[in-house]
Design a protein around this nucleic acid. Sequence first.
DNA 1: CCATTGTTCAACCAAATGGTTGACAACCGC
DNA 2: GCGGTTGTCAACCATTTGGTTGAACAATGG
Lengths: 125, 125
Amino acid sequence: MTDQLSRVFAALADPTRRDMVARLTEADHTVNDLAAPYDVSLQAVSKHLKVLEEAGLVSRTREAQRRPVHLEAEVFDLMTKWIERYRRRAEERFAALDAVLAQMQDDSPNRDQSSTPTTQEGTAS
Amino acid sequence: MTDQLSRVFAALADPTRRDMVARLTEADHTVNDLAAPYDVSLQAVSKHLKVLEEAGLVSRTREAQRRPVHLEAEVFDLMTKWIERYRRRAEERFAALDAVLAQMQDDSPNRDQSSTPTTQEGTAS
DNA sequence: CCATTGTTCAACCAAATGGTTGACAACCGC
DNA sequence: GCGGTTGTCAACCATTTGGTTGAACAATGG
């Protein structure tokens, strides 16, 4: 799980972290600030932030003793690109399937649903 | 990690599983078929499929001895909705920040970047 | 300069994850 | 029915994850 896309997905797989990200879309927050709503130790929140930071989802600067956490929203694009790419391919395929089904109604009642397992590639991540 | 959104994100946090999903956008595949490109046991692939299935990303039917795996692309929407929702909020906020900065140039050189930590909601997952 | 505030580091623990091997269930073809 | 295919289940193992507590570190404000 070493590439960034994996880290981003993994980071958002946790509800607490997702909630933190959600709150950070409204405003930057300090760690204490962020930790307040959750029933876990401050240290646990600190760990969550580390995960988010390593995924590139947040950055931290320094401001007096505080360590304001800032959302880096561009990383969302990484996911969106991946998702949209494959969603589109899936949709195209369904469209093609619909076309085939439509043609099967026109043609003679042929029956061969061997699902054409010819595809063999591996482009992802 | 009990809600579906968490399960979907977690499922896609693994590059092998992401690759499987990618290939399934082109066509349905049997388990053996899916396992072929990877250097892991068939059982490991079976486990990955279980994860994808529990996330609602794939479904399996039965066809003789084979167990064709089919992508359920609608689940992508779950993620897209979440991502777009918060991306939009983040963008609005940056727009607002830009406006503030623009006004600060017009006004007297006021300095108060207290990051307004008033937000306190918890809408996520 | 030192007490306070804010945050992280270290060590530890239980549970989950991703992998293995071995057994076996279901089904087709013969 | 027997043997080959196809896939899952079970038990096991190492690593990671998410949490804990206690101590340490970093800057600020008196």
